[in-house]
């Protein structure tokens, strides 16, 4: 009867002298796998122009229907090297299942997934989870 109790206590006391596994999350962050699928980024090329050409393949392949985009023309090639940009690009993170199909489908490597998983939004409702192009676009000058 005492035997099993001691056995259990051994585990308990054993952990007292091992390093803690708990991470103080907002202050400390755990490293994630290199190929972790976190939030999306719309890439820019070397000249700071958008890579996305609004071909709509990510939108077509998305199994959750989370992506909505409309294209527009950029006749002076200022914002795109092919003259076509996404006028609006929205990801609904309330729907996104982080499967990464959009990244696979993209013919120009314009959308990639980062290791950033911090998508908590303020307030109730889903409205904050609709992320528009400004939010998704890789910040100019490198973030």
């Amino acid at each position: 009867m005492v035997g099993p109790l001691l056995k259990g206590l051994r585990v308990t006391f054993g952990h007292l002298f091992k390093p803690a596994v708990t991470v103080k999350y907002p202050y400390e962050k755990r490293p994630v796998a290199e190929r972790y699928r976190g939030r999306h980024i719309l890439k820019l090329d070397e000249d700071g122009r958008e890579k996305c050409c609004a071909c709509g393949l990510c939108e077509a392949v998305c199994p959750a229907g989370a992506i909505t985009l409309y294209g527009a023309e950029d006749p002076e090639f200022k914002r795109s090297d092919v003259g076509k940009i996404a006028e609006t690009y929205e990801i609904d993170y309330a729907r996104c299942i982080f499967c990464g199909y959009c990244v696979d489908a993209c013919p120009r490597g314009a959308i990639i997934m980062t290791t950033d998983y911090e998508l908590t939004v303020p307030g109730p409702g889903r409205r904050h989870l609709y992320k528009d192009k400004d939010w998704l676009l890789e910040k100019r000058g490198g973030e």
Binding site: G56, A60, Y70, E73, K84
Partner: peptide, 9 residues
Amino acid sequence: YRYKTRIWK
């Protein structure tokens, strides 16, 4: 219609 959206949408 230029570049607005894709035909399958």
